[in-house]
Amino acid sequence: MTDITREDGENGGRWVTVIDGHTAEMTYSRLGTSKLIVDHTGVPDALRGRGVGLALAERMVADARAEGVRVIALCPFVKAQAKRHPEWSDVIE
């Protein structure tokens, strides 16, 4: 669907995509070496309804699986998506 890049820092980072000049992101912070806290998903109104938030969440789940980390979802969007995607329960607490 779209290119999603990850900006990863020592204490946290974000997954980000730019579509038609609009930036959407999902931010996180680190909790030790084994957990990420996803705290915000921001999708501009111009991109709503296009599956951008879900694409960010799917990338987050894929990265967490690849790295063997668990995710604590503080973000309401991610919490809602986790309920819709029980197959993510191996990653999202």
Rank of each mutant, 00 (worst) to 15 (best):
I92Q: 04
R50F: 00
E87P: 03
P76I: 06
G12N: 04
R65K: 10
Y28W: 09
W88Y: 04
P44R: 08
R70H: 08
E7Y: 04
G13Q: 12
D20A: 07
A66F: 07
R30S: 03
R50W: 00
G9V: 08
L31W: 08
V18C: 10
M1V: 06
A66C: 12
G49P: 02
D39L: 09
E67V: 00
D20H: 04
L74T: 08
D90M: 10
T23P: 06
V61M: 01
T5K: 11
I19L: 06
G32T: 07
G13V: 05
E25T: 15
C75R: 08
V18D: 10
G68F: 15
A55M: 06
R48G: 04
D90I: 10
R30F: 01
A62C: 09
S34C: 04
A55C: 06
V78P: 07
T27G: 06
G49T: 12
I72N: 02
E93Q: 05
D3R: 14
V71P: 05
R48I: 01
W15I: 00
E67C: 01
D63R: 11
V16A: 14
T23L: 06
P44T: 05
V43I: 07
G53F: 14
G49N: 12
E93K: 12
P76M: 08
D63A: 07
A80E: 04
E58Y: 07
I92P: 03
S34D: 15
K79Q: 12
R84V: 07
K83F: 06
V43K: 12
K83H: 13
R84E: 05
V52S: 11
F77Y: 14
S89K: 03
T2K: 02
D45K: 03
V52P: 09
L54P: 00
M1C: 00
E93V: 01
H85D: 09
R48S: 05
T41Q: 01
R30A: 03
E7G: 05
G68I: 01
G12Y: 07
I4Y: 00
C75M: 11
V71H: 02
A80H: 06
R50I: 00
K35P: 00
G68N: 10
G12S: 14
K83V: 09
D63W: 12
E93C: 04
H40C: 03
S29E: 11
C75S: 01
R48Y: 10
G42F: 02
E58R: 05
L54G: 07
I37T: 11
K83Y: 14
T33R: 15
G32R: 06
G49K: 08
D45P: 13
A64G: 02
T27R: 15
R65L: 02
G32Y: 09
V61Q: 10
H22Y: 13
Q81K: 14
F77M: 08
W88P: 02
V71F: 09
K35L: 14
G21A: 03
S34K: 14
T5L: 11
G51T: 14
S89P: 00
L74R: 13
E67F: 03
A80Y: 10
Y28C: 12
G21Q: 04
V38S: 08
I19P: 02
R50V: 03
L31Q: 15
H40D: 12
R70K: 13
V38K: 03
H85E: 09
T27N: 11
A62E: 15
A46H: 07
L54N: 04
V91C: 00
G68H: 15
A64Y: 03
T2P: 09
K35Q: 14
L74K: 08
